[in-house]
Amino acid sequence: MRLIGQAILLALTMQLTVSAFADDAEDNDIYAEFLEDGNPAEFSEINGEELWKTKAGPNNVSLEQCDLGKGPGVVEGAYVELPRYFSDVNKVMDLEQRLIHCRMTLQGLTQEEATKQPFSKPGKASDIEPLVAYITAASKGMKMAVKLEHPMEKEAYEIGKKLFFHRAGSHDFGCVTCHSADNKRIRLQNLPNLLDKKQAQKVYATWPAYRLSQGEVRSMQHRLRSCIRQQRFPNPKYASDAITALTMYLAKSADGAVYAAPAIKR
């Protein structure tokens, strides 16, 4: 009798668990919708605009003449076409690499100075994160349109794709381990299947994002760095070409998505 009781209880618990899983994605959507009204990334965007227009560095100039790919000083729509090939450096760059480039060439900072604090820490804010928030916000509502025309852009895409599928390390892990199947999650965090175009679009178009758990706007570099840490790989160098290549692959996977970042996430 007791055994049957236990079995029923077990069945009940299982059913409850199953329905909890089913509601999960929906609940997360409601949560996200509620938060959209109060996204502190707005403040980052304002701070970033100020930083963009403030004279700084040994040369005492602002970043307003920085060429993000659409001509010097054009911020609107720049992010949806990044990463891209820049002929002045003969390289494919993502937004953050380009920002470093501008801070070095325009403002006269050294590489060390320009990459000194890419991510905010408690009590120590980064300049780069607000700048990224400002620049990405200027592409809101536009469609992701990475060109992939130049041979070096194509090369970056192929390298990025390889990196995505590359499994290695102590756990034989790769991006693909978590992001190649539908309806997977880590704890309460849904894992998008990045091989599915719709899911790839939804995710890419909402990064960078204000992360409630960290209280900061986090850039794509930060996001991918976290992914790589979770794969038990060594920390990548900030603004390395490998991260740009991976970003290129993801950006192209999200082609056509209506850009809606900086968003707000857990």
Binding site: D37, G38, N39, P40, F43, K121, P122, G123
Partner: peptide
């Protein structure tokens, strides 16, 4: 009414690096 406030809200319990 919806109010979004900019404030660090440090607890005093966290430690820096």
């Amino acid at each position: 009414a919806k109010i979004l406030i900019q404030h660090d809200m440090e607890t005093g319990l966290r430690k820096g690096s």
